[in-house]
Design a protein around this nucleic acid. Structure first.
Lengths: 255, 255
DNA sequence: GCAAAAGTGTTGTAGCTACACCCATGG
DNA sequence: CCATGGGTGTAGCTACAACACTTTTGC
């Protein structure tokens, strides 16, 4: 399940839709590591993906953006829905959702959380350094965790994470990725390390550079990274126009 | 929205979940045409995609399979969810859903249909000749319509159809398609015509054959199609084992 | 025999892999 | 001056598009 942004549902003038939640796999990249944003629940000590519910007057995309704005401080995040998780048993475990979230079963909202939720999975790509992780009322920690250090998550959140990662890898083979994960200016090595991390394997330094440049989505700047050991690498930025075009039309596979 | 399989919701021992529906874009292939299964509503004369609702104790995939079993007579259909449609205004039009579905506003279930629905879009690939289209209580026609003959559909169903088609085309570039759309035995021309129809452009007859055979998902049979003009074409069938492998691992784009 | 479709062969090219090689920089 | 990473060049291979050519069948 999800960590609601506001707990006082009934006091809000806007109501949440029953049965529908969303969960976000927020990817960031730092020191050559792919990281995921997770929350640590106060009461049970379980780790969960950031998530939330949908107001009666908003689309699920707007809801996901709203949730992530609170959790990261960022607006207009790169967000893609990738799967709906609807196993009837997914929110039906011991301890129950309400047990985990509420301070006691006598809490008036406990039964609301005990309903069955169908969750729409989103993945988000964000620039690590721009994010200010914010826990909510139910959690004491909101932080980046290395992908390979993620342990057992609440409910089916491990399955959600795995499916997001699978989708991200698939996207990477026919769409550009990087604009949302890297700072504005970056070296070719940094971009390559990102690709290597997502794919989980090494790529040839020289061929990667040529292939990437051939896509024609990068602009080489008249700057180099200073203060680094060895030869100063050139800096690049994405050419937003052709980057967007590549997103829309795909990179290879033309038939 | 959707055409419910049963109308007497409250009389059922199983209840539908509020706010959640599903819509299916069912693709078939016949006489070199891509076709879509649509229903014609008795009361308003509008055309709609087959759809339904989710029981409290089933996953959305099971619900979609159940709906299509009633509509086509087929079970275990190739079914993929591709997008969630959640615009708050999508079920909020004139005439309203309840107007269209119920015989009058005084009908006891009218208000249930008037709630906001978030719809999970599925696309299905089926073998045309195996399908027995079945209308429901609210529709007088359930039939195949050529993709290029589809007119205005109810609500946002045209958008759902377009997104399904877009997804299908994308899938086609890196996954095999055909097993679910063609009869067991088929000629290379028939398979090529299917690809040409989905892509909406002609493909080189000779290169297509080589490329397809190189994928190693076809078995050439010791049979030819008889009674056809000109040279008898050889028949093929899919090699299910490698076909499934290609589905899982993808065909090209390796990095 | 001839038109039309099936089936196989060939050639040029683009893109990729796998390297070798040189360059720039910090220690 | 040397270790390390940055940048460019190139040979060989593979995949594929764009064809020519041959084979088979119905009329």
């Amino acid at each position: 399940m999800t960590s609601p942004v506001e707990m006082d549902i009934k006091k809000e003038s806007r109501n949440y839709l029953d049965h529908i939640s969303l969960d976000c796999v927020v990817f960031g990249f730092h020191s050559n590591q792919l990281k995921v944003l997770v929350l640590h629940m106060k009461k049970t000590g379980e780790w969960v993906l950031p998530g939330g519910f949908v107001y009666e007057d908003e689309s699920i995309e707007v809801a996901a953006n709203r949730v992530l704005k609170v959790r990261t401080g960022l607006d207009q995040i790169f967000l893609r829905q990738f799967n709906v998780f609807s196993d009837p048993q997914r929110s039906n475990r011991n301890p129950t959702v309400a047990d985990l979230l509420m301070s006691g079963q006598d809490h008036p909202e406990a039964s609301w959380f005990n309903q069955r939720f169908i969750s729409v999975g989103f993945y988000a790509l964000v620039e690590y350094s721009q994010v200010q992780p914010q826990p909510d009322e139910l959690s004491d920690i909101c932080e980046w965790v290395n992908l390979d250090k993620i342990g057992k998550l609440m409910m089916d959140h491990n399955a959600i994470l795995n499916k997001a990662l699978e989708t991200l890898r698939l996207q990477l083979t026919f769409q550009p990725i990087g604009y949302n994960l890297l700072p504005e200016k970056f070296t070719m090595s940094e971009l390559r390390k990102l690709y290597e991390t997502i794919f989980g394997k090494e790529l040839d330094r020289r061929n990667f550079q040529r292939k990437m440049l051939a896509y024609d989505i990068l602009s080489r700047l008249d700057e180099v990274r200073q203060g680094v050991a060895h030869k100063s690498p050139g800096l690049y930025k994405f050419n937003l126009e052709s980057y967007q075009k590549a997103l829309d039309e795909g990179l290879n596979g033309k038939w």
